[in-house]
Amino acid sequence: MTTVSLIITTYNWEEALEAVLKSVLFQTRLPDEVVIADDGSREGTKALIESYQSRFPIPLIHSWQPDEGFRLAMSRNRAIANAVGEYLIMIDGDIVMPPSFIEDHIRAAKPGWFIQGGRVQVGPTRSRELMIKPMSLSPFASDIRNRKNTISSNLLSRLFSYQRDNDAATRGCNMSFWKAEVTKVNGFNEAFEGWGREDSEFVHRMLNSGYHRLYLKFAGAGLHLYHKENARDALPHNDAIFHNTVEKKLKWCELGLEQYLKAE
């Protein structure tokens, strides 16, 4: 069987992270380990993770780096380097997983492909409820958007999932890929500063390297807890990096995963 690592990114939001960790415990298929990609959270996050490590049924690893600004790509790369799984499922620390989430991603995984999962956008009232008690949501639940993504069906997923070899609707909050294939493009590009475009740039390097993206429908969708949008001050700088990758059809980034793999 393929070994699977679940990577959860986080930064100073313990309530959301705890809801995500609780949702791991209800999975129909547990990952082989969970790696928390922590971009410099305070002691509260460390204490939370330690409290779960003692009662978690699988290894729970805390991959932490100092808080020196928004360095999501670096935190992801460090976590990927630490991960032992052959297949990596990556979510944000505000994505509560329905019970079949891990199983859905594994079922759809195949060599040469990476997966873009969907999300249900959850409003503030329902988000507070999910942080108290993670639960599945029906298409008729109140205070949600993209409600069709609450439908989980193996048959519908096989019929409606499709190849989407562009960067449209890229959401790094719910993706999965083979570690060996991500290593060949050097992971995520740490030249990005602040929020924006790092996920789309990664997708382009994967596509430029000959891999295909599966847009997963009616399966593997996460429940995205409500929060205010991130600041977008860094977009002009990040746009320039993104467009350079697109125009030059780059397959590799200079500042990426390789440095941590060498350090192992």
Score class of each variant (00 low, 15 high):
Asn149Glu: 13
Asn174Trp: 07
Ser153Ile: 06
Arg171Phe: 08
Ser152Glu: 15
Ser152Tyr: 09
Asp143Lys: 10
Leu155Tyr: 14
Ala169Glu: 13
Arg158Met: 04
Asp167Trp: 04
Ile144Pro: 00
Phe160Lys: 12
Leu156Tyr: 06
Gly172Leu: 08
Lys148Gln: 14
Thr170Leu: 01
Asn174Tyr: 08
Asn174Asp: 04
Thr170Cys: 14
Arg145Ile: 08
Arg145Gln: 14
Ser157Gly: 05
Ser152Gln: 15
Ile151Asp: 00
Ile144Cys: 01
Arg158Asp: 10
Arg158Glu: 11
Asn149Cys: 05
Thr150Gly: 07
Arg171Lys: 12
Cys173Gly: 14
Phe140Arg: 09
Ser157Phe: 00
Gln163Asp: 10
Ala168Thr: 10
Gly172Met: 07
Ser157Arg: 04
Pro139Arg: 02
Thr150Arg: 06
Ser152Asn: 15
Ser152Val: 06
Leu156Lys: 11
Ser157Tyr: 04
Lys148Thr: 11
Lys148Pro: 02
Leu155Thr: 12
Asn154Lys: 14
Asn174Thr: 07
Ser152Cys: 11
Ala141Gly: 08
Gln163Leu: 09
Asn166Arg: 05
Leu159Pro: 00
Ala168Met: 12
Asn166Pro: 09
Asn149Leu: 03
Gln163Gly: 02
Thr170Arg: 06
Ser157Glu: 07
Cys173Pro: 01
Arg171Leu: 08
Asn149Lys: 09
Arg158Ser: 09
Asp165Ala: 08
Asn146Met: 12
Ile151Ser: 03
Ser161Trp: 00
Leu159Val: 09
Arg158Tyr: 03
Pro139Ser: 03
Ala169Asn: 13
Gly172Arg: 02
Thr170Val: 11
Asp143His: 12
Gln163Lys: 14
Cys173His: 10
Asn146Leu: 15
Thr150Tyr: 00
Leu155Asp: 07
Lys148Arg: 14
Arg171Met: 11
Ala141Cys: 10
Pro139Phe: 09
Ser152Met: 09
Ser142Val: 13
Thr170Tyr: 08
Asn146Arg: 11
Arg171Glu: 11
Asn166Ser: 14
Ala168Glu: 15
Asn166Asp: 15
Ile151Ala: 04
Ala168Gln: 13
Arg158Thr: 07
Leu159Arg: 02
Asn166Gln: 04
Asn166Met: 11
Ser152His: 15
Phe140Pro: 00
Asp143Tyr: 04
Ile144Trp: 06
Tyr162Lys: 15
Arg164His: 10
Asp143Thr: 02
Ala169Lys: 11
Asn174Ile: 12
Ala141Tyr: 13
Thr150Cys: 12
Ile144Glu: 01
Leu156Arg: 09
Leu155Ala: 10
Ala141Ser: 14
Met175Trp: 06
